[in-house]
Design a protein around this nucleic acid. Structure first.
Lengths: 217, 217
DNA sequence: ACAAATTTTTAGTTTTGCCTAAATTTATTT
DNA sequence: AAATAAATTTAGGCAAAACTAAAAATTTGT
C-alpha cells in the first residue's frame, strides 16, 4: 500500500463512525483536503485492491482487510506519538505531523519492538487507545465534560479534538490527562462551566468542555 | 526535497569519494538501480535546485548546499541505525532497509532529540561516523585488516562492506566492533589470513580481510 | 412528481519519476 | 585520423495521484 492509499484508509476508518452506511465521497474529500473527483479515482483503485467496497453514488465501506490495514496504520501512528512524548521530550501538541510521517514506515519488527520498548502502552498521549497487533481496540468508558452535571467529578482521560490549538488551551489552564476535576457550576446562558482543578476554579467554554473526555471517578 | 531527490544526493555523495572530478551518469544509475536517462533527468532537476552542478557529458558534483543536505540525510540514517540496535534489539545486519525509510522523515526536533536520547553517539552500528548538526564528520584513523602485517594487532572499528551477507559472516566467526585481533599468518597464495580472536585462531579470506577496518592497538 | 440543487462520476490535463529507443558526444582503437 | 565503442542526452511515453470542467445520478423542495 502506498502512503496515499494508507491515508485514504485511515480517513475512511475515522469517518465510518459518523456514516454507518457508506462514507460519502465528499466527506472523504474534505477529510483528505482534496477534490471529490480525486476521491472517486482512489476509491476505484482501493476497491480493486479489495480493501473497500463501493457502489456508484453510494459511498465507501472498508472490508475486513481494509479495516485491519487502517487499524495497523493507526497503531503505528499512536505508538510513534507515545514514543515522541515519552522518550523524545515532545509535547502532546507537537507530535501529530511527525507521527503522520512515521506511521507509514514499513517494518513489522520495528513496531513490535517499539511497542515493547515503550512498555506496551494502552493509550497515546491524547488518550486514544492503541490497537494491538491483531487490531483489537480496548474501549474505555468515558464521557464529555460537557455532559457532567454540577457536583459530579471525573478524571481527564482523553480529548475529542487533538488540534494543537485545543491542546495548548488545555495546557494554559493546567489541564492534562490524569488530572481530576469537579463541576462547580454550569452557566445556563452559554453552557460554560466552572470546574475545580488542583484546588483552583477555572472556567471552561462549552466548546472546550465538549472536547474533553473524563472517566467517572 | 523529495525522497527520490534525497536518495540521489546520498548516492552522489558516496560516489564523490571515488570520482573526484564529476560523478558519471552511469555510476549514479548503477548505484540507484535505475537507467542513465532517468539520472540525466534528475540531474537537471537537482541542478535547477542548486544542490549540484553539471556540464553536459561531464558528470555531477554536489554544491555546498547539496553536500550539507546529503550529510543531513546520512546523519539521520546513522542515528536511526543506532537507535534500532541500541534500543530496539535489531542486529547490525537488519537495520539498513528500515533506516533507508526513516532517514527521510522531516523534523529537526526529532533528530536533535533522537541524538540526545542516544547519548550523542559518534558512530553507527557499522562503525561509520555520524555527522553533527553542522555536517562535520569526525574521521577516525583506521586501516583494512588486509593491510596489516604478520605480528600486528588491532581493534575492529568498522566495515567497508555493510551488506547483510558480510555482517553475518563476521557474526559467524565471532567478529564484532571493539574486538581485538592479531595477525598470526598470511597465506602467500591467496592472501587469506589466520588471526587470533578471543584466544582462538580463525582464518579469513582476502575478501573478508579487505572489508574489515581496524585501528592500531 | 418534477424542477432545482447537490453529489458523484467521467473525461481530459498536469507533474513526478521512471522507462525505451534513438541521437549525439566523448573515448578508445587501430 | 578515422572508425568503432562507450557514455550521455534527447525525445516520446507511462503510471500514480492530483487537478478542472462537464456530464450524470441522486436528493430535495414545493
Amino acid at each position: 500500500m502506498t502512503l496515499s492509499e494508507e491515508n485514504y484508509l485511515k480517513a475512511i476508518y475515522h469517518l465510518e463512525k459518523q456514516y454507518k452506511e457508506g462514507v460519502p465521497t465528499n466527506a472523504i474529500a474534505e477529510e483528505m483536503e482534496t477534490k471529490a473527483s480525486s476521491v472517486t479515482d482512489m476509491i476505484k483503485k482501493l476497491s480493486g485492491k479489495k480493501v473497500l467496497t463501493h457502489k456508484k453514488y453510494q459511498g465507501a465501506r472498508l472490508t475486513e482487510k481494509g479495516l485491519l490495514h487502517a487499524k495497523a496504520v493507526i497503531r503505528k501512528h499512536r505508538l510513534w506519538e507515545s514514543f515522541l512524548v515519552e522518550k523524545l521530550n515532545f509535547k502532546w501538541d507537537e507530535v501529530h505531523e511527525v507521527a503522520e510521517q512515521l506511521e507509514h514506515i514499513k517494518s513489522e519488527k520495528l513496531i513490535r519492538e517499539l511497542d515493547r520498548f515503550l512498555g506496551y502502552p494502552k493509550t497515546d498521549p491524547h488518550g486514544d487507545p492503541i490497537p494491538d497487533e491483531e487490531g483489537n481496540i480496548q474501549v474505555q468508558e468515558k464521557e464529555l465534560l460537557s455532559q457532567l452535571e454540577v457536583g459530579e467529578r471525573g478524571i481527564c482521560v482523553g480529548v475529542r479534538d487533538s488540534s494543537a490549538a485545543f491542546l495548548q488551551y488545555l495546557d494554559k489552564y493546567g489541564i492534562s490527562l490524569g488530572k481530576e476535576l469537579a463541576v462547580l457550576h454550569k452557566e445556563a446562558y452559554d453552557e460554560s462551566m466552572v470546574v475545580e482543578l488542583d484546588g483552583k476554579k477555572i472556567t471552561i467554554s462549552n466548546q472546550g468542555a465538549s472536547n474533553l473526555y473524563l472517566k467517572q471517578k
